[in-house]
Design a binder for these strands. Structure first.
Lengths: 156, 156
DNA sequence: ATGATATAGTTTGATATCGAACTTATTGGA
DNA sequence: TCCAATAAGTTCGATATCAAACTATATCAT
């Protein structure tokens, strides 16, 4: 059965829905691909945190991280405790705000991230044969733009 | 040894990471947005199944659905039991294969989906003011292409 | 026909997610 | 100063996810 009475072609909710549907499947597949290469019980979220601490700088607070990843702070508590248990990060008291903490990378954490990347590269290279990297490079900023709009919309 | 022909300069793994990172955040945000409008304990996966059964046709088997959504069949078992408990689907024996089952929509299921869409449309319309729908329309087939590559790569 | 193998779906158990309540610390106003 | 309101992080409980083992059925080779 087709949709309701023809709305203006571009405002069809199905268009938006299809877009998010593709996003969801890609996320599912890429997560599985990454996690297959990570050792033990490490999951993408663990790796993402290490990566973020390298890219931005360590010493971030849990709240900063939860905002960066758009997940509830309770989820971060869990992720960070996993990383701490493995000795990849250190939680220190915040120097000026007693309520807060800082997340610092350990040497083991840095080394693990490098090793993880080394393990991932072959997969990515194999994909690169098939993926159009130019296309990916063009898509990323467009996705970032959409992500920002969704994020603003959320808090609005 | 493989040839050492100059690799394209863009083969930086970071490019691919960034792409998947944006995908992940958009997925997170859009899921939260949809679920905020769904009643009770309904989650996106429930809605997606109803939607798929309408779009394709009901009478699909659980395995077909798990392939369509790229999730393990054990996850589908759980999702389907939630839908069945709410009376939105009926599980029937497969007419020719005793190992299998068929998933049929009930009237309640169809009605619920229509109602859910009605509740989602205002959000999507609000977004449409800010999102560039033409851009979205251009992006979707490109994402579908990437999704196919990832999917093939998975089973290969 | 018959046993071996493969397939559809469920169960189980372990972990991830995350809203809500809670604890502790900071801030701001009187 | 004091206390009410706010903020950072944790705990708790309920649910989702999913690999591995399991059950039941089908298919294939001999």
């Amino acid at each position: 059965m087709p949709d309701e009475d023809a709305p203006p072609a571009e405002l069809n909710p199905g268009t938006v829905f299809e877009f998010f549907n593709e996003i969801g499947i890609i996320q599912q597949l890429s997560r599985a691909m990454f996690e297959a290469r990570l050792p033990d019980g490490m999951i993408v979220q663990h790796f993402s945190v290490l990566n973020h601490l390298i890219r931005v700088a360590d010493g971030r607070t849990p709240l900063e991280l939860s905002r960066a990843f758009q997940v509830p702070k309770a989820s971060l508590t869990n992720t960070l405790s996993g990383l701490e248990k493995r000795g990849f990060i250190e939680m220190r008291r915040h120097p000026t705000d007693g309520r807060s903490k800082q997340v610092w990378l350990t040497e083991e954490g840095r080394a693990f991230r490098e090793e993880a990347i080394r393990l991932l590269v072959p997969d990515i290279m194999a994909l690169s044969d098939k993926l159009n990297i130019d296309q990916l490079t063009r898509l990323t900023p467009q996705l970032a733009e959409i992500r920002k709009i969704l994020d603003d919309n959320r808090s609005a």
